[in-house]
Simulated scan of single mutants.
Amino acid sequence: MRFSMRSFLKNVLAMAIGIGITLLALEGVLRTTHLLDAHTGYSEPHPLYGWKLAAGRDYWAELEGGHAEGVINSYGWRDREWQKEKGDGVYRVAIVGDSFVEALQVEEEETFTRMAEQLLNDEGQKVELMNFGRSGATTTEEFLFIREEVMDFKPDLVVVVFFPYNDIRDMDPDLTHDNIRPFATFDANGNLSIDTSFTETRSYALKSAINPMKQSSAFVSLMATQYNQLKGAFSKKAKSGDVSSQEELLVKKGFLSLATDSPVPDFERAYALNKRMLLEIKMLVEKGGAKFMLMNLPFATLKPEIEEDYKRVDDTFDRTYFDKDLGKFAQEEGIDFLPLEDSFRDFWQANDLDILPGHFNPTGHQLAGKLLAEAIKSVKVRSTVEDR
């Protein structure tokens, strides 16, 4: 009996050593080859934002055929290192948004923020653009970014980049696929409250517990990513109901219903909340002595055949709805506005280049950078005139 137990323990130990060696070898392969897009984690849970990029961490990404790698700066944003104080005569612009601004599909120097900055400085202007982009950020989270961090850098202009797809959906806990985030509410008197009760959930606790392992292991990070993707896929399937296509889901039950004559009430409410939060951002920015601009991103309707897919679901669909509606809102509220839908479509038709495969590719970033540079220059010139 004693002999059998000893043999058993030896076998268990040998097996444990074998598994350990295998896992170490697998970890080495994943780190060096990035097989299956594996990489160590470079984000961390945040008790106010839900999560944030981890300051000083190396990042590596291959998304939508593009590649990016570098180091998150010491303030926790995907940009070069910053100085709190502006240089003499520098016009500082903070660009705040989601994954389109974070732009992990391209190298940092190819992002539209860097493109716009380069164009302006090539003209002899002293302009600094700062990238406050974080994947999946909503207008609520962007308000918090600006309140907690952006205004500390004393920007002259704050640009909020709006993407209707997830900016509208993720404002509402009943519509979003990810509830580990803050939600904005307003009471009967119009007072803003930020609900951060996600910090009390089991999901947030689990995320916080696993995160150090994700940062230490490409294997653990890969497993967590695969799990989240599966979870998201099941969530989307559950919310899709009886629709037969992605186009039907977006137009009949999703945010694109707003661009038709039959808007879904839940999305109308979430969109109205976005506008209310944009006004809160405007007040916050102007209180800090800066100008505010709203930039609306194009959706994937550049090609006529894609637009026709949506029109087949509902012939009242208007691809320019958000540019027009947000443009009207901005005009009424005294907000500078940069629409991109028509400019991107005109470019695509003239050049027949794929610039929006999902997020911007390098050509898309070049175009967005050019348009943003022109808009910044206009605001800067007007501000100079007003100051005289």
Rank of each mutant, 00 (worst) to 15 (best):
N296P: 01
F299T: 02
A25D: 02
Y49E: 10
I95K: 04
H359F: 06
E44T: 14
E110G: 03
S7R: 14
T32M: 10
Y165P: 00
L278P: 09
W77K: 13
E148W: 08
D172K: 01
N211E: 15
A68V: 10
V160F: 11
T316R: 03
D261M: 08
G288S: 10
L63D: 11
S216P: 01
V106Y: 04
S217C: 10
T33H: 07
L222W: 11
G20Q: 00
D167M: 13
A224G: 06
L278V: 11
L120Q: 02
L144Q: 13
E81A: 11
I21S: 02
F299H: 00
A184C: 12
M171P: 01
L371H: 08
R114I: 01
K253R: 07
N274M: 13
K52P: 03
N361L: 06
N211C: 11
K84C: 04
W77G: 08
Q215I: 10
Y271A: 08
K324T: 13
R276E: 14
I355A: 13
A259K: 08
S262D: 14
A25M: 06
P265F: 08
K287V: 01
A350C: 08
S4P: 04
T111H: 03
P298W: 07
S43A: 14
V160K: 05
A116T: 02
M295R: 03
T201F: 00
L371E: 09
E62S: 14
I281E: 14
S262L: 03
K380A: 13
R31D: 15
V161G: 07
F162C: 03
K236R: 14
L157Y: 08
S43K: 12
D156R: 05
G89Y: 08
L279K: 13
A184L: 10
E62W: 02
T139C: 13
G65W: 09
M295K: 04
W82D: 09
G364C: 10
Q366L: 12
L340P: 00
V150P: 01
L258M: 00
P357R: 07
V150A: 05
D261V: 06
F183I: 02
D37K: 14
I281G: 11
T139F: 06
A330Y: 11
N11A: 12
P263G: 09
S99K: 09
S99F: 05
M295C: 14
D174F: 01
E62A: 11
K291V: 06
A55Q: 09
A184Y: 07
A218H: 10
P212L: 07
I19A: 13
E44Q: 15
A184E: 10
S203N: 12
S343Q: 15
L63H: 14
A290C: 04
V96R: 05
L13C: 11
L144M: 14
V379Q: 08
A300D: 10
G136D: 01
D314F: 07
L206S: 12
F234I: 09
E81N: 09
P362Y: 09
D170I: 00
D58P: 13
